[in-house]
Simulated assay, not measured.
Amino acid sequence: MNPILAKTFGGLSKQYYFRQLFFAVLMSAFFIAIGFRQKDGSIAIGAILMLFVSTFLYPYSRFVYESIIEFIIGNNTFFVNAIFMMFVKIFTMLVCFMLAIFIAPVGLLYLYFRNSANGS
């Protein structure tokens, strides 16, 4: 594999990547289902292409979000209402999915420099 690709796209653990990819596929399926429920019963090719790109970039977008939250919160624990927390979690997942094309490059750059510094 190309060393640049290995340091960027291969920078996340497989377990983390596939877990986040699972949720991205669920969100894509949700948006495709909504698209097919439109009056004409079709979805634009551009929308499907954007969903495809967002699906594969979502794990890196989520990595950036979780890294920022970990930096801000640290090892603190917050006790909040579970229903409220689920709404916040779903909201942040949707934001990371919809903005993955803009957020993921930051994560890919970080992974590249981190893995280059580690000598891998």
Rank of each mutant, 00 (worst) to 15 (best):
P3C: 05
F63G: 06
S61P: 00
L109V: 14
N75S: 10
T77K: 09
L109F: 09
K89A: 15
T55D: 05
F78T: 11
T77Q: 12
I69G: 01
V25K: 00
G74I: 14
S61A: 13
I90E: 06
V25L: 04
G11V: 09
I34H: 01
A47Y: 04
T8M: 02
G11I: 07
K7P: 02
S28N: 12
F30R: 00
Q38H: 11
F23M: 09
I4T: 14
V80G: 08
T92E: 08
K89N: 14
F30E: 07
K89Q: 13
V53K: 00
A24G: 15
F102W: 06
E70T: 12
N75I: 10
E70G: 05
V80M: 06
F63C: 08
P59Y: 02
F97C: 11
N118F: 03
L5W: 01
V106A: 08
S67M: 11
M85R: 09
R62E: 11
T77M: 08
F71S: 14
F79Q: 09
C96V: 15
R37M: 13
A24I: 12
C96P: 04
G46Q: 12
A104K: 03
N75F: 02
L99P: 01
F102M: 06
C96S: 15
Q15G: 00
L94Q: 10
Y17A: 06
S120E: 13
F102L: 11
S13F: 00
L21R: 02
G35F: 02
Q38P: 02
K39Q: 11
K7G: 08
N2P: 10
L12V: 07
M50C: 12
I32T: 14
I72T: 13
F22I: 13
N118M: 13
P59L: 06
Y16M: 04
V88E: 05
F87E: 01
R37E: 15
A24M: 06
G10V: 07
V80P: 02
G46L: 14
V25M: 01
G107M: 03
N75P: 03
I83D: 08
G74R: 00
Y110G: 08
N115L: 01
